[in-house]
Nucleic acid binder design. Structure first.
Lengths: 165, 165
DNA sequence: GTCAGTGCAAACTTTTTGCAACTAC
DNA sequence: GTAGTTGCAAAAAGTTTGCACTGAC
């Protein structure tokens, strides 16, 4: 499905959601949805605000962003994450299921796919609970930070050796 | 392992960590560790602050709580979660691996264990990444909220039927 | 004695709220 | 017309920071 096609589809899903729940179909809401579906990967409210500030027609306030994003989450068009300090969001329609690796040193978040894991989770029977969606966060060191740490450790040992001589 | 035994062990682990990293062994730090290991389940900074405020001897400031909890996380004695708005923490030593179910309606967080899932995750090979720990959050409806929703839906339909007559 | 650690308050960041103005219905 | 939405600014909530004082080493 190409990008425009996805945008049309999610706009339709959103319209149905708004109708079903008696919410108004304001231009701001559609502008926000459109902008979100133009973003690849994660974003926070501030980034979204900056992106939308460029538009002359549909500059929206932060308050509206917060309000609208709750609707989008309920309409299952956006997923909310909470790595780090501020909430991160991402589009969820027509997006492959993926998991997140968060480097505890540099804070970088990377995505990866793993069908086995995905199936294992989706086929699990949860106690007194009905699954709607899930997040798997893997914490640890990204390869970059790990290399860096090893280098530092080596330097430290070298310095110690020099001193001993 | 009984509770006192666990407390002694974690105190020892913490001491080693503090020594290894050139940090001072202050009574506040041990008091915080002790309090945390008296708590079952999750807690946030505010709860911990209230709990410790009762102590006459070791009332600590929020700033110290934030500082110390970072050390405890690094010493692998505490895990940080980010459901909802404020950060949640929990002790991690001598604690069975468990996952979290978060009700998107009432916000209640429940824990569950599932060895299959645990093994599936732990045996996964992650791309360019070294696992240190992980969090699996299952979002959906707890049985209570689901029952409530069904009841409401029924009432709504009943009301509609009445009006039609 | 020194400097890391502490308490306190102020600052900062992110999110929520109250209210007047606006507009989708 | 009217009630749901918006923008703005103020408030709230959570966390970080600056600084003087304290106490672990």
């Amino acid at each position: 499905m190409d990008s425009q096609n996805v945008k049309d589809t999610v706009r339709q899903i959103f319209t149905e959601y708004l109708n079903a729940n008696g919410h108004r179909k304001t231009p701001e809401r559609y502008a926000i949805l459109d902008t979100i579906y133009s973003i690849d990967g994660h974003f926070d409210i501030d980034t979204l605000y900056s992106l939308m500030a460029d538009h002359e027609k549909f500059r929206v306030s932060r308050a509206t962003l917060y309000n609208t994003i709750i609707l989008l989450i309920n309409a299952r068009l956006v997923i909310k994450h909470q790595f780090g300090n501020s909430s991160q969001y991402e589009k969820s329609y027509n997006r492959d299921t993926h998991h997140h690796q968060i480097c505890t040193q540099c804070g970088r978040v990377t995505e990866f796919q793993n069908e086995e894991l995905q199936h294992a989770i989706e086929n699990t029977k949860f106690p007194r609970f009905t699954l709607s969606h899930y997040s798997l966060y893997i914490y640890g060191l990204c390869s970059k930070c790990e290399r860096q740490n090893k280098r530092k450790l080596k330097e430290k040992q070298n310095n110690l050796n020099k001193k001993e001589k």
